[in-house]
Design a protein around this nucleic acid. Sequence first.
DNA 1: AAGTGGTCTAGACCACCCG
DNA 2: GGGTGGTCTAGACCACTTC
Lengths: 252, 252
Amino acid sequence: MSTEGAKRQPKYQRIADELRDAIQAGQYRPGDRLPGENDLMADHGVARMTARQALGVLQSEGIVESRKGAGVFVRAFRPLRRQGIQRLARSQWGEGRSVWSVDTEDRTLVVDRVRVTEQGAPEHVARVLGVEEGEPVCVRSRRFVLDGKPVLLATSYLPAGLVAGSSIAQEDTGPGGTYARLAELGSEPVHFREEIRSRMPTAGEAEQLKLSTGTPVMLICRTAFTDEGRAVEVNEMTLDSASYILEYAFDA
Amino acid sequence: MSTEGAKRQPKYQRIADELRDAIQAGQYRPGDRLPGENDLMADHGVARMTARQALGVLQSEGIVESRKGAGVFVRAFRPLRRQGIQRLARSQWGEGRSVWSVDTEDRTLVVDRVRVTEQGAPEHVARVLGVEEGEPVCVRSRRFVLDGKPVLLATSYLPAGLVAGSSIAQEDTGPGGTYARLAELGSEPVHFREEIRSRMPTAGEAEQLKLSTGTPVMLICRTAFTDEGRAVEVNEMTLDSASYILEYAFDA
DNA sequence: AAGTGGTCTAGACCACCCG
DNA sequence: GGGTGGTCTAGACCACTTC
């Protein structure tokens, strides 16, 4: 056999560690190609599956990305910054600018695949909106794309009775967006709650967001309340975690 | 786009889908054992590695957890709720209760492995605190454990000159914690910014938080400012995403 | 056409957990 | 002790990308 000393760790881990260190040390920069499976087999005298496993480790850590037929490449991290509180200040959406245009920071975030339907409220949405399960709600789904890469899926739910006949039920909600329309309907949202969690994406999410393996999603569920404390919208968002930093600024 | 045959999918994906559906349908409940590698080989007539790959898919999705020598089990999700804004209201830390006790919600969150040192400010911290890189800062590291399971790592940085001689440089900061001491020093934090991102854990993070594969971490970086807008603390937190939901409530 | 990663087989030995 | 997952080998064919 080979030398005994270094057997404390699995081979694939040692190979992965070596590559990770090289990346951290700057020997490979974002976008660079790493040694492929064949290179690792030759360099380390190891079987195919073992080299593969080593690359799999880095891939599932999200620091590396494989492209079929091309190679394995170092990933970059260049996120957007999403201002959780300022974005919802009245001054932002009262002035005809889209809520979302605040996001962009000079890159262009475009909306894509808008779909507006009416359907029965799912259980968890019904509970938050304070309606019966299955009661009709207006469902607005959109996807947002940045420089050709989808970064955000958003689905909002509003009581169907509340928005009937308004442009909220249309694809284009007009200047100021949904919240300006709600205000005109006498249900101005003034209080918000955002709940955030993170997990690995489902297959469907990974496909819609074109996520590479090893990239989690962040989930934001925002509930909008009127001044009477009535919930008028639930907005469920799914964010590519490699594309976003969330920011909340507030006073003690 | 007719889906003829549907055999375009790899075997391991079909097996993974089948198991996932069964879990979603409630055939396997949290804590239950799934069919193992040998079962899948027999049931589907595939090789070891293929059955393994199928289970690997579910594992990296975080919905399943393998225990060496025992089997593969369905994971549960029972998170804590962390109130991002109310937790920092003066009423919370002015009254002698720890900032963190607000988290617990009747389960017990205990602090563990406190370490307080003085060292040179890392670059990104120095930039935020507005000091020179390498200037001495007080570094407070803690780990928080819930029911025996570590859920949160926190490291905060404060200018060494500011906190010298106060109990902030001790392991026990006394009633009201760091922020109450800062207030006594004339640097009461009144404004906060929290930045949130998510990614897969490093090997070290996975070990310290005892994370099972397929679990991302959430990173919160909080900066605390005085009323003059001077940054007095940077707190970097690493959260087990399977243990936390973050909540921010605010007004338009 | 050559090279790459993606899938798959059929064996093997090990460390670990449980009854 | 028997079963489980963890690691590893040595082959194979395929789809895809790049030149």
